[in-house]
């Protein structure tokens, strides 16, 4: 009944723009900065936990969330909207994937599902767009056999082979597996990144990342760079309580809760404890 007389609030302006989406992006651009960096063996997500009052308990606030054991995300923009999206992402990863295939969705599939949710909010009646941008980081198990690392001496023969070799898939990434980092915007568009930032100081942070990012980065270096970038843009104090970091790394079997179960693998995505963050900060 309700949807019969409800119309989309997101309608085109005469110039062809959807101003509601631009307003949503404005909300994002006022949000606290969040960033993500992809390394060869993992990903780091980082953001600042800003509290409006010294009386808040920072340990109860959590801006980085686990979606599946190998996928996590962070946001910039409106906190309540983000929590709804986390719920939807967790739900859809089960109803739309795990309950069908008995395995968790690859990162890109989850990103598409979340992006669909956000897109629907730009075209449905009676709703407004989500006021958040997301950074979604995950690790995919590869489908193709791992290829031998070709050393420089074989480069010429390897090039010759390359010409004969047929491309096995459109996106080499998902077939070979490994770390994946995506940004999703209120419009429902999404982009893969090596490193990026969203929120208030996204431009500054991205300029900084462009300078510091190198190919073949390791996870430890990525965490280091993430903290340096955050330091450039942070407004408050920087310590284990005010910084939040999530990493995608090797399987964390200690988080499994059980031991000696054959084939059981720990989650790759985990949040760093305040103590771990302090340790990184002292080495900065």
């Amino acid at each position: 009944m309700a949807d019969r007389y409800s119309f989309s609030l997101t309608t085109f302006s005469p110039s062809g723009k959807l101003v509601q989406i631009e307003y949503a992006l404005n909300a994002v651009n006022q949000g606290v900065t969040a960033l993500g960096i992809k390394a060869t063996n993992g990903i780091v997500l980082a953001t600042e936990k800003k509290s409006s009052s010294p009386l808040t308990d920072p340990s109860s606030l959590s801006k980085i969330s686990l979606v599946t054991p190998n996928i996590g995300m962070v946001y910039s923009g409106m906190g309540p909207d983000y929590r709804v999206l986390v719920d939807r992402a967790r739900k859809v990863s089960h109803t739309g994937y795990k309950r069908i295939y008995n395995e968790y969705p690859p990162t890109r599939i989850l990103v598409q599902d979340v992006a669909r949710v956000m897109q629907e909010a730009t075209q449905s009646g009676g709703v407004r767009p989500y006021g958040v941008s997301l950074l979604i980081a995950g690790w995919d198990e590869g489908i193709l056999p791992e290829e031998e690392e070709e050393d420089s001496t074989n480069e010429k023969t390897a090039q010759a082979e390359d010409e004969q070799k047929k491309p096995t898939g459109k996106t080499g990434g998902i077939l070979k597996g490994g770390p994946m980092l995506y940004q999703v915007d209120p419009s429902g568009s999404y982009f893969p990144w090596k490193a990026t930032a969203i929120g208030k100081s996204a431009t500054t942070a991205k300029t900084f990342l462009e300078k510091r990012y190198t190919e073949g980065l390791e996870l430890e270096d990525a965490v280091h760079i993430a903290l340096l970038t955050l330091k450039e843009t942070i407004e408050g104090e920087m310590n284990g309580e005010t910084i939040e970091i999530g990493i995608v790394g090797p399987p964390a079997d200690h988080l499994l809760g059980v031991e000696g179960v054959e084939g059981a693998k720990g989650p790759r995505f985990r949040k760093l404890t305040p103590q771990e963050i302090e340790d990184y900060l002292t080495n900065l």
Partner: peptide, 19 residues
């Protein structure tokens, strides 16, 4: 089409089961 990869036998088996 969605995943740009071939389905694995185990994944397919689970698909059969849930279907």
């Amino acid at each position: 089409l969605r995943e740009e990869r071939h389905i694995a036998p185990t994944t397919f088996a689970n698909l059969v089961s849930s279907s």
